[in-house]
Each structure stands twice: as structure tokens, then as C-alpha cells.
């Protein structure tokens, strides 16, 4: 659905446009149909710039991309028809009503039955009662819902969401997240940026951690395994130093640490190694009370990646 090859974007900045700022560097990625893809990265990483490139709003300095099967730069109008975008700061026509705002965009997107689409999304977003109020009187949450409705009014196959839940209260965020789940179940492809890692972990099939360059890209659980291996904790009633060597000698076991009465073992394949370790421990006379797995949050992975990432800007 989205396929980029060596995309870069250089902005010219400074009073005389004399300085170069490389916002996106050599980005190659592919997002599959029906996938929710999370694009993560610190402030100024180039996420919004990437979204703008892929929606045909700005041209990449180098590289090529296909979006919805169309070649970026050659078939932008078709890309725009098939793509919905929730921009980072979605502005509305404040003096106009919510209904009018949606009607304008439905017309610009050549929606066949404008009134039907407008009504559908107004009620879906819970804005029906307030549809005739001017958007100037809307709260941030209502605006965000209206902006989502606007991004969806033409039933795009691909949706770009730039920080869809930023600035929303927990309840409104949840509404938006549930809505994204629903879109996902309809088989739409979603490319979202977010600073909420918990959200990314819950919603996204795969995440890319990005800072000018793509640092890593995989499903949240694979990223966890890759970076930290998988670690298992064995809670024992008492601890004997000899058991540490015993466990460390078992095939597939990596680093073994002792924390109080617990053995923390890195394992490549816990499904295979756990029974062996438990049998060995029990044979050696240990009382195994619990066995648990340590889960690293996406946040830890993110901080690790971004911390070590190259922060320097050209």
C-alpha cells in the first residue's frame, strides 16, 4: 500500500536559505494493506515531514514512493483521492458549522452522496447534536473528532494520522483509539505517528522508530525480543550459588543474574528451555515457587534506540 525507496528531504533554512536541514534521510519502508503502522520518533525527527511527503503535500528531495498503487510525484491527484490525512494541527473553518465543514470536504473529495456521508460521520463521531454550531465553539476533543471525520469522509483506503490523540483527555483518547481499531478491522491501512508508546504498542502491527533515519522496524514484540532477548524469572524459596552455574550451563541460556531469591535468565527460546531448567533446579533440590517472564515495554526499547541514535543534524 505504501512503499518508499530512499526518500530524503532537505529543507533550506536560514535568512538566505543558505543552510541545509536534512529532515528525512534515506527512508525505505513498506506498509502492507490492512496494517496499522506506527511511526515513532522524538520531536523534530521528521515524522510530519514524512507524512507530508507521502500525502503529496511536499516533494521529496530524493527517492521515490508508491502510495495506494500510484507513483508519488506523477499521480498525486489519484494519491490524494485514495488517502485521508489527519494533520498534526488540523484547522477548521471556525466560522462555519461542523456540517458545512464536512460538506465542503466531501465536495472536494467528490463523494457521491455528500449529505449521506456527512450525516454518517457526524453521528459516528457523536457530533450530530452540535452539527449546526460553528466549529469556533468546539472543544479540542470535538475538533479532533471532526478532523477525523473530515479525513475519512471519502472512505480512503489509506489513512495518515499525525498524532491523533495528542492533547486529548484519557477518555477522548480512548474513543479515538477504539475508532482506529474499528478502522483496522475494516481493513484500512493506517500510518500513524504518535508519542504515546503505550498506544503504539496496543494499536500497531509494526512500528518504525525513526529519527531522521529509520532506526528499526518490526512488530513491538519482535523488537522486544531482538533487543533484550527474552528473560525469565525463577522465584526460588532459597538461593544457592551453585544453582547459578547449573542454570548457566544449560543449552540456550544466556546471562544469569541473581536478584534476592530470584534467578533472572536470558533465554533464546523459553518454551524449550524452561522445562529443562525447572527439572534441573528441582533435581538439585531447589523449591521453585513461580516462573515468570519479564516484558520490556516499547518505551524501554524506544529510549534505548533514540538515546543511542545519531542526534546530530546536518
Amino acid at each position: 500500500m505504501i512503499k518508499t525507496k530512499n526518500i530524503s528531504k532537505v529543507f533550506l533554512i536560514g535568512k538566505k536559505q543558505e543552510k541545509e536541514l536534512r529532515a528525512v534521510d534515506d527512508l525505505t519502508l513498506e506498509v502492507m494493506k490492512g496494517e496499522v503502522f506506527g511511526f515513532l520518533g522524538p520531536n523534530g525527527a521528521g515524522k510530519t515531514t514524512t507524512v507530508r511527503i507521502l500525502t503529496g503535500l511536499i516533494r521529496p528531495t530524493e527517492g521515490t514512493a508508491q502510495v495506494a498503487g500510484y507513483e508519488l510525484g506523477r499521480d498525486d491527484t489519484n494519491i490524494r483521492r485514495n488517502v485521508g490525512i489527519l494533520t498534526e494541527a488540523p484547522g477548521m473553518y471556525e466560522r462555519l458549522t461542523a456540517e458545512k465543514n464536512l460538506t465542503i470536504f466531501a465536495n472536494l473529495y467528490d463523494v457521491p452522496d455528500v449529505q449521506k456521508a456527512v450525516n454518517k460521520y457526524l453521528s459516528m463521531m457523536g457530533l450530530w447534536e452540535r452539527r449546526l454550531d460553528s466549529v469556533g465553539s468546539y472543544s479540542k476533543g470535538m475538533r479532533q473528532k471532526l478532523a477525523l471525520a473530515r479525513a475519512l469522509i471519502h472512505e480512503p483506503q489509506i489513512l495518515f494520522l499525525d498524532e491523533p490523540t495528542s492533547g486529548l483527555d484519557p477518555e477522548a483518547s480512548k474513543t479515538v483509539r477504539d475508532f482506529i481499531e474499528e478502522l483496522k478491522s475494516e481493513g484500512r491501512t493506517i500510518f500513524m505517528t504518535t508519542h504515546n508508546l503505550d498506544e503504539a504498542e496496543r494499536l500497531c502491527d509494526r512500528v518504525g522508530i525513526f529519527q531522521q533515519k529509520l532506526l528499526t522496524l518490526d512488530s513491538p514484540s519482535n523488537l522486544r525480543d531482538q533487543m533484550f532477548g527474552r528473560r525469565v524469572v525463577f522465584h526460588l524459596q532459597t538461593m544457592e550459588p551453585a544453582w547459578v552455574d547449573l542454570v548457566a550451563g544449560i543449552a540456550g541460556a544466556g546471562n544469569v543474574e541473581v536478584v534476592d531469591n530470584k534467578l533472572v535468565v536470558s533465554l533464546k527460546n523459553p518454551e524449550e528451555s524452561n522445562p529443562v531448567i525447572i527439572r534441573a533446579l528441582v533435581t538439585a533440590g531447589a523449591q521453585v515457587q513461580f516462573v515468570g517472564v519479564i516484558r520490556h515495554s516499547l518505551e524501554q526499547i524506544y529510549l534505548e534506540m533514540v538515546g543511542s541514535g545519531d542526534r546530530g543534524q546536518a
Partner: peptide, 13 residues
């Protein structure tokens, strides 16, 4: 008012 970007994202020429 930041409405230009969504407007330019539509298929209008």
C-alpha cells in the same frame, strides 16, 4: 488557521 494543509491534501487541482 491551519486549514490550508487539509485543503491542499484534497484532490483539488
Amino acid at each position: 488557521t491551519r486549514s490550508l494543509e487539509p485543503l491542499l491534501a484534497t484532490p483539488i487541482t
